[in-house]
Computed example of a mutant assay.
Amino acid sequence: GQTKLVSSHKEFLSFATKRYLVQFLRSNGIEANAKDSHFTIYQKAALLPKSVWRTATLNYLKDKYKTTFQNFIENRSDSDFTLDKDIENLSVQKLLDRNPDPIRDKTEQGVGWESWEPSNLTGLDAVDVSAQMAHHGFVTKGPVMLIPRAS
Rank of each mutant, 00 (worst) to 15 (best):
K141N: 14
A126V: 08
I87S: 10
L96H: 02
H135M: 11
A126K: 13
S51W: 06
T57R: 00
G137R: 09
F15N: 09
A134Y: 09
W113T: 13
D63C: 12
H38S: 06
S27A: 10
G110P: 10
V127A: 07
T17P: 05
D63I: 04
T55Q: 06
E74L: 13
L83V: 06
V139W: 13
D63L: 08
Y42G: 00
W53L: 01
S8M: 01
A56N: 00
I87P: 04
A34V: 11
L61V: 12
Y42D: 03
R19M: 05
S37D: 05
L121I: 12
F39Y: 12
S14E: 02
Q93K: 14
T40F: 14
K44G: 04
S14L: 02
P102S: 02
N99L: 01
S79A: 03
G142I: 03
N33P: 01
D105V: 04
V129T: 07
P143D: 02
K66I: 08
L124R: 10
S119W: 03
L13P: 02
D36H: 15
D78M: 02
L21M: 15
N75H: 12
S130E: 01
H38N: 07
Y60R: 00
N59D: 11
F72Q: 05
S37G: 07
V22A: 05
D63E: 12
T140G: 00
P118V: 11
S79P: 03
G142N: 00
Y20H: 08
F69E: 03
A32P: 05
L61D: 05
S37E: 02
T40K: 13
G29N: 04
R54H: 12
Y60V: 00
A34N: 08
N89Y: 14
Y42I: 03
S51Q: 09
V139A: 14
S14G: 01
L47K: 10
Y42T: 01
A16V: 04
N28H: 15
Q23N: 10
G123V: 13
H38F: 11
A32M: 09
Q93N: 14
W53K: 00
A134F: 08
H135T: 11
L90S: 06
D125T: 14
Y20P: 08
V92C: 12
S27G: 08
V22Q: 05
E74G: 08
S119A: 09
P118K: 03
V52N: 02
T17I: 07
K35D: 09
K94Y: 08
Y60C: 03
D36R: 04
E88P: 06
S7P: 00
Q2G: 06
F39V: 10
V139P: 03
